[in-house]
Design a protein around this nucleic acid. Structure first.
Lengths: 292, 292
DNA sequence: GTCCGTTACGCCTGGCGTAAATATG
DNA sequence: CATATTTACGCCAGGCGTAACGGAC
């Protein structure tokens, strides 16, 4: 089977117009007709209802099945081109979320040879954004944060470290002098709530469920961690923070959580499934795995 | 690009021998040479190291990348053929695990027209097995049990119901007359442990973690639910069971769990991503969603 | 020398274009 | 009748086979 036929077909289902598709690919219009006929022979089925051309139901059920699969096949072929083309540049395209970068970047530099650091092209962004880029072949390796294990379509992820959460409070807060605190004591506190894109958001919900409390939370959800810190510093409320997520932050205190709850912030290395690592990339990943 | 070339190439990487691949596909041997050359032109890269033919490192890094992707592309093409061929039969290929079937099958029959029931081809098996069959196109719709939401490569799953777990004990057991029990009271009990393939196994671990107990469990892991029941009936220990999982089982009693732990047995409907449901299949799924 | 892969060359199918025919509204 | 798709037919490239050549053990 010719993969061009799949491209023509996907475009035809989208545009529902042979002439437009022919123009799009800069071929004559009968070429499209013939391409569809080839596919219909190949799959021994009718794909387009000739009597209903230009109507919304012109595509048969078999046609829809082929459409859905052909889109994925075409995407995979494009990704393959992208991967192979990029491999020639010998770059290591690496995604690192800012939150994790802040905690770990100095360790990464320590564990990585200068030679490899030169090759590194670092992309930052939220874990969700980086996952998309990884799938699309824009980056090849990413470190991602998550509450649970990462089970994503076409992504191979390995958990390399976990960190417990802590409670952060203003140093003016009554409990600021304690070392640890049980979640149940916090039922009457006001929590600064994170934006949903943060794991902290889901983690806070989990903690509250298991502790059996429903504390007040801010009605707004703060989209940036440094803003959360600022609010806590001003004693507007308390919040969650990954342990050691504070560095030289006067006015804020982090308290361990004493409940035996296994909720932790997980850090994983993620690679596209089926991506074949270069020796340099393997060396780099070995360095990453030494992070603690 | 010709998809036959991808098939030749995948076989070549596996066998590392042009002649064998030619025999496998019943073509002449120069055909394989030319096919590889076509691919090398298409991707503008070298795929096979000519100087190291028949050696383990005969495939270049680009070749390995193409290999990994080509395998997936070929599989997807096969799946597409499989799907389209099967669509002609108008069957509804439906997977249902025995555990869930026992609880819900009568409801499924009630919610499904006789016409649809005739079309139904039911496949039973563990949830893991059914997932594999779903991915391979052996079945098209499955009901699956799980603890968490299902996030699987290429599978679209929708949670339709959850059931709480109960503790099952022999009717001779001291606590058999109670209605409910807190997990913490069970620290000294002996638990019959399930095989890892069961969600019960993971659920038990979660419960114990959150209750902060580490009870005795049987050193063996029982691979069949009815065996677990039999052991409980004989008062050899207690165990977990999905609520209403017992029907006419004399000698066993189910107790609600009073802890506010959100661990539940989830029941999801799963469909291959990109699979285009027939009207009959949609009707059938609508019936499934009415289950409680 | 033997086994395996590549090159050379001829054949035929397959994919595309142009032009004419046909269908749809 | 106008616009859109299919059919007819001719051209050339692409994929395959046979046979000869080249390289590795």
């Amino acid at each position: 089977m010719n993969t061009r036929d799949l491209q023509y077909f996907v475009a035809l289902v989208k545009y529902k117009n042979y002439t437009q598709v022919a123009k799009l690919f800069k071929v004559s219009q009968p070429t499209i007709t013939q391409s569809i006929q080839r596919l219909e022979r190949e799959f021994n089925t009718s794909l387009i209802r000739k009597d209903k051309v230009h109507r919304d139901d012109m595509v048969t059920r078999s046609g829809m099945m082929l459409f859905e699969n052909a889109k994925l096949i075409n995407k995979k072929i494009d990704l393959t081109h992208e991967e192979i083309n990029h491999a020639k540049l010998k770059q290591i395209r690496f995604g690192l979320p800012p939150i994790i970068g802040k905690m770990y970047f100095s360790q990464i530099v320590n564990n990585t040879s200068e030679e490899l650091m030169k090759r590194l092209k670092i992309v930052t962004g939220g874990s969700h954004e980086l996952l998309t880029q990884l799938k699309d072949g824009k980056i090849d390796i990413a470190v991602l944060g998550s509450n649970n294990l990462i089970h994503q379509d076409g992504i191979f992820a390995e958990l390399i470290a976990t960190r417990p959460f802590t409670i952060i409070v203003s140093s003016r807060h009554p409990i600021a002098k304690r070392e640890s605190v049980s979640f149940k004591e916090l039922a009457d506190e006001n929590f600064i709530n994170y934006d949903q894109q943060y794991f902290h958001y889901a983690a806070l919900k989990e903690y509250c469920t298991y502790a059996g409390i429903e504390p007040k939370t801010t009605p707004y959800r703060v989209p940036d961690i440094s803003w959360v810190k600022e609010l806590v510093r001003q004693n507007r409320g308390i919040s969650l923070m990954v342990k050691d997520g504070l560095k030289n932050e006067p006015g804020i205190v982090a308290l361990n959580i004493s409940d035996p709850i296994p909720e932790r912030f997980g850090i994983s290395i993620a690679v596209r499934e089926g991506y074949f690592l270069s020796p340099e990339e393997e060396e780099f990943i070995d360095g990453l795995k030494m992070m603690k």
